[in-house]
């Protein structure tokens, strides 16, 4: 029997709920991984027809083009407020926001804190790439000390602009359903991140309060690093400031 004659089965293929169009993301940017994981989780949970996404402002502003689910587009930073409005009116729907770090951790800090403190029953997918991607790589609250960006050309001075914003410290007092941080490079990290996303959606649908998954993502273009170097930077430098793991609602260790 030649190889061509051996029967095969598909063990992995692109999720149906992802639209067929090509994303506008740069090569090596892992917004696409986050999209795929959310798509897979929604498919596996049977929530595709029940889901309403809230897009934010940033590189993922056009996320609704890439998913075959209902979406609304929020103003910059306001996605958790918009998701609150939707979830309160349609309490049986799976309502999630998809936000970047400029959106959530800077301009939208008020809205995410408000939603978290109310225990709003939504899922928040937070993609952290340590800069403002869409506007061309400016400094964000998540930018690492010393990291050069287009608005911190000498490297971020933490004494003047603050240490990287870490949600698990900031929100330690909130009664959240789930709070975890994963990374979107390397198969083991990505598989773990998918489990986190799954857990977040499950706990959210179980009305356990706001469920939040932060996903570290490389930004090769604005970090001025080739995709493979950007991956290394994420694993070697970014995780020093942003430890991976579950901080609330995780399995007992």
């Amino acid at each position: 029997m030649t190889l061509a004659e051996v029967p095969t089965r598909i063990v992995y293929s692109r999720p149906e709920v992802l639209d067929k169009r090509v994303t506008h993301y740069c090569p090596g940017c892992t917004h696409g991984v986050a999209h795929r994981l959310v798509a897979e989780v929604l498919e596996e949970m049977g929530e595709v027809e029940n889901a309403i996404g809230v897009a934010s402002v940033g590189c993922s502003v056009f996320i609704y083009n890439y998913f075959n689910i209902d979406f609304v587009e929020a103003a910059h930073g306001r996605a958790p407020a918009m998701a609150t409005g939707i979830k309160r009116l349609l309490p049986d729907r799976t309502v999630f926001t998809y936000q970047g770090d400029g959106d959530l951790a800077s301009i939208g800090m008020g809205e995410i804190v408000g939603a978290a403190s109310r225990g709003e029953k939504i899922t928040v997918i937070f993609l952290n790439n340590a800069n403002y991607g869409m506007t061309g790589g400016q400094m964000a609250p998540t930018t690492l000390p010393g990291q050069k960006t287009t608005s911190s050309p000498y490297g971020k001075d933490a004494a003047r602009f603050g240490k990287p914003f870490r949600i698990e410290d900031a929100y330690s007092g909130f009664d959240m359903g789930y709070l975890a941080r994963g990374a979107l490079v390397g198969a083991a990290n990505i598989n773990r991140a998918k489990k986190m996303i799954r857990k977040a959606f499950e706990k959210h649908m179980d009305n356990q309060g706001l469920c939040y998954v932060e996903l570290l993502s490389p930004c090769p273009t604005n970090w001025n690093l080739a995709p493979l170097k950007a991956k290394d930077f994420l694993l070697e430098e970014m995780t020093k400031h942003f430890p991976l793991g579950e901080f609330k609602g995780g399995d007992a260790k």
Binding site: L3, V6, T8, R14, V22, P27, T30, V33
Partner: peptide
Amino acid sequence: GCGICAVVCPDAAITVYRYERQKGE
């Protein structure tokens, strides 16, 4: 056919197949 390439692909570009051989083939 482990699928690691598909897991790390940011653009969901990869489809993974496995051969279904009978034992002994």
